[in-house]
């Protein structure tokens, strides 16, 4: 892999973000709205039920982490969609770039887009609701890395669909995360789900990540075994995502959809 080419591909997206204030605003806007929404809902519950008294922080932290996952996946898809929308797709695929370099560039650049949204939202939650996700401590890094890897994997899978089926797959890009959200047990423990859905949920790393977040915040307990389970599952999904991307690329080359792909 050539780091110079990965940097060049990243630069194209950095220039795009840098040159457009509305784009930066858009990146910050949605996570901030999420924080306000969940913050006030949680506050309302606190005022009206003693059960929820200590869980404002848990719900809000879950909202921030879920948004981090959502943004990392969407950022990945968005960068790829930008190439399709701008009709730059063919230029990109006739340049001497390896698929692995494209994947690496999108993966590394997605973190910038994600952090532009996450950092202001996470900081805003501290004075507004007295909630800091940084209370999770060092395991927060592991949780974020795992979430990021899974978010990027989802982005990679949707991108594979875009390569294979073209822009008509765009709607799936937006719907993909909403589909997984109920199974991810983000705001509730896995026991809430019916038995058969619990089995499906355990195949996702999200269950272990959000369960661990709750354990840390409520009981002050850390299970590195659960976290490592999430890491391993995320890596397996990532490998699957990469294979899928390569297969989709080969399929697109066979179908001739890489040339003149646009809006």
């Amino acid at each position: 892999m050539s780091w110079a080419k990965i940097f060049a591909l990243s630069l194209r997206h950095i220039y795009l973000i840098k040159g457009s204030f509305p784009r930066i605003l858009d990146l910050i806007y949605w996570p901030t709205i999420q924080i306000f929404l969940w913050g006030f809902i949680s506050k309302f519950f606190t005022m009206n039920s003693s059960y929820f008294e200590n869980t404002v922080g848990v719900i809000l932290s879950a909202a921030i982490l879920y948004d981090f996952l959502f943004r990392s996946s969407i950022s990945y898809n968005m960068m790829f969609l930008e190439e399709i929308w701008s009709r730059n797709f063919t230029n990109l695929f006739i340049a001497p770039i390896k698929l692995s370099e494209i994947i690496a560039a999108l993966t590394f650049t997605a973190i910038f887009r994600t952090l532009i949204g996450l950092i202001p939202a996470a900081l805003l939650a501290i004075p507004l609701f007295g909630v800091s996700i940084f209370k999770i401590g060092l395991p927060l890094i592991l949780l974020l890395v795992t979430l990021y890897l899974f978010g990027v994997t989802l982005g990679l899978m949707v991108t594979s669909g875009l390569v294979r089926f073209g822009p008509s797959f765009e709607n799936i890009a937006w719907a993909s995360l909403f589909f997984l959200a109920p199974l991810g047990c983000i705001y509730y423990p896995i026991e809430v789900l019916p038995g058969w859905l619990q089995l499906a949920a355990k195949l996702l790393p999200l269950v272990y990540i959000f369960e661990e977040m709750r354990n840390i915040l409520i009981y002050d307990i850390i299970s590195y075994y659960q976290i490592s389970k999430a890491v391993v599952i995320s890596i397996l999904y990532f490998i699957f995502g990469v294979i899928l991307f390569y297969l989709s690329y080969a399929g697109a080359k066979n179908r001739g959809t890489l040339i003149n792909m646009g809006e």
Binding site: Y15, L16, G19, S86, R87, N88, N260
Partner: peptide, 11 residues
């Protein structure tokens, strides 16, 4: 096919 419209010519 086109180049990204939001980027400058130099970029």
């Amino acid at each position: 096919i086109e180049l990204p419209k939001k980027l400058t010519v130099k970029q």
